[in-house]
Amino acid sequence: MEYLLRGVAEVVSVEELERKLTESYRTGRPLRVKLGIDPTARELTLGHTVPLRKLKAFQELGHQAVLIIGDYTAMVGDPTGRNEARPQLSHEETRANAATYVEQAAKVGLDISRTEIRYNSEWLAPMTFADVVRLASKMTVARMLEREDFSKRYAEGRPIFIHEFFYPLMQGTDSVAVRADVELGGIDQKFNLLVGRDLQRDAGQDPQVCLMTPIIEGIDGVEKMSKSLGNYIGLSHPPEEMYGRTMAIPDHLIIRYFVHFTEVPMERIREMEAAMAAGANPRDFKMALAREIVRLYHGEEAARAAEEHFRTVFQRREIPEDLPEVTLAPGNYPLVRLLVEAGLAPSNSEARRLIQQGGVAVDGEKATDPLAEVQVRDGMVLRAGKRRFCRVRVAP
């Protein structure tokens, strides 16, 4: 139980979980443990790995992991924590976003060959309008308005759209469809998970246990880790970027990240927490954290290289030797265009933003004028942000 409950925020209920685990052991029937992820974007973050690691933990104990890709729920968009409706996605968009989810989920160590992968369009798409009406009859508006996000929007006069009410019912229907014994999710998903229990009772099933993980702050230390806020560490980030972003977290998140984003034993984590409380330099433990996170997703060699890159660029203030290179025609370039063509900014607007924020340097000299022109020369080094470098080669 200690292994399963590491870092858990709440369980509804611990007694039911103990009962289900005992019964599973007695009968030899593995528990069906469900986790749903909506493909609203193409990249998973470390925040997504918190419940994924719980799914892996149950799988390692012999239970059946059920990973639901919410290609239909993503079209509605989870209203949890939102002060306005999410933009609606088409089914084609959600399926395109989901294309790499299984591969990314495997990075946490989940054995995909033993994982039941389901798309909730399997049971939601065939529903008739009569089915939807029957489903809607299971919930009252008053109950929906108990949700903090809905009640806040209602009190502030912000619109709540009818389709948003369907989200918890759709998620709960997932639990009925796969006959979940346990559902995993963030603590902000509590309402949705409890709806699943209600719908299972109505369907004559034993209600699922709801095991909820905490919401982890992003690298800004304030807001929930989110791609839209830019305060995230992505599973597809290259090693140097992953390491550097981890080093950007405030000191008070070091232990929290160790608990939820790594598999370092709790005994060792408590030792580190005590050492910092006694005056040890948090930087050393933050570097150990960054190295461990990179190791988990890119391997030991990449972790060592990322740490050396960080030491070279930030601690010794040197330029790395193995810079990526771009070949350009000779001549003068607007600085904004130069950054885009060098691959250091995805767009002109992003390049202007970087320049205005003081995040651009040409051969070590900060460039702050977005209207500036630069004459390229062979060997010129460009920097954008803290971690992205590029060496210019001039075409003959």
Rank of each mutant, 00 (worst) to 15 (best):
G62A: 15
D71M: 03
E60W: 03
L89M: 14
Y72L: 15
G47P: 02
A65G: 07
V50Q: 06
I69E: 01
G70W: 04
D71T: 03
A85I: 01
K56Q: 07
G70L: 12
M75D: 01
K56I: 00
L52F: 13
T49V: 11
L61S: 07
D78F: 00
V66Y: 00
L52V: 10
K56P: 00
Q64T: 15
Q88I: 10
N83W: 09
A57C: 14
G81E: 05
G77D: 02
N83Y: 00
T45G: 06
R53Q: 12
Q64E: 15
E60F: 03
L46I: 08
V76D: 03
G47V: 04
M75N: 05
G62W: 09
Q88H: 07
D78T: 02
V76R: 03
R82L: 10
T80I: 12
R86Q: 11
L67N: 13
A57P: 00
E60D: 10
I69Y: 02
G81V: 07
L67W: 07
V66G: 01
V76Q: 05
G77L: 07
D78M: 04
G47Q: 01
E60K: 09
P87N: 05
R82M: 12
Y72N: 03
K54R: 13
A57T: 15
E84R: 15
G77M: 09
A65H: 08
A74S: 10
T45E: 15
G62K: 06
L55P: 04
E92W: 11
Q59H: 13
E92C: 00
M75V: 09
L52Y: 15
P51K: 00
T80H: 05
A74C: 08
P51C: 00
V50T: 08
Q88N: 05
I69W: 01
Y72R: 11
E84K: 11
G62Q: 05
K56W: 01
K54H: 05
T49A: 14
L89C: 11
A85V: 12
H63C: 08
V66L: 14
L46H: 00
Y72Q: 09
I69C: 04
L46V: 08
L44H: 01
Q64G: 03
S90T: 13
G47K: 07
S90M: 11
E84Q: 06
Q88A: 00
E84D: 15
H48P: 02
P79A: 07
